[in-house]
């Protein structure tokens, strides 16, 4: 029955919500459209994931971009972060091998290995205003927007 509703089965049959679920779908479609829009915006809908380690969350406010990644067990000095124009690269290596001998593993779910991820920020950043911090396994890269990328208020005369 639900499939019929989703397929827009004749709506005049008195169902209270013939477009049940359509709202969510339309929002996703909007986001997809924005993705393929040639406006040059790097706004990605949230289901569109790159699949490259580490997973990143990028947020912004008027002044800055914030790039966050969960990197448990990696020390700040083991990370290499580079910024070049709009490009930000985060690379490093995670070592989960254990140093002790004569041990028996019950479970091994934590993975180790090398990683490197490059992203393009949606706007230009000022390389002087890029800082990074590592707190409790959470990396936060804060990049100050360059003057050109900041929103400007335009007064109407």
């Amino acid at each position: 029955m639900i499939t019929r509703r989703m397929l827009n089965f004749p709506a005049a049959t008195g169902w209270s919500h013939p477009f049940f679920g359509m709202d969510e779908l339309r929002k996703d479609m909007d986001r997809l459209n924005r993705l393929f829009d040639s406006s040059g915006s790097s706004y990605l809908p949230h289901f569109f994931k790159a699949g490259v380690f580490p997973a990143l969350n990028i947020t912004e406010n008027e002044e800055k971009y914030f790039v966050r990644a969960e990197l448990p067990g990696i020390k700040a000095e083991e990370l290499d972060i580079q910024v070049n124009g709009r490009n930000l690269t985060i690379s490093g290596e995670r070592n989960t091998a254990c140093c002790e001998e004569n041990i028996k593993y019950h479970r091994r779910e934590r993975e180790g290995g090398k990683f490197s991820r490059g992203i393009v920020l949606p706007g230009d950043v000022d390389p002087e205003k890029v800082t990074a911090s590592m707190v409790n396994g959470l990396l936060t890269v804060t990049a100050g927007k360059s003057e050109a990328a900041k929103p400007r208020k335009i007064n109407v005369n």
Partner: peptide, 19 residues
Amino acid sequence: SVDIYENDREIIMLADMPG
């Protein structure tokens, strides 16, 4: 995600809880 291993004397558990 966890790693669990044991030696003769103890069981050791490592859990990733970033943030």
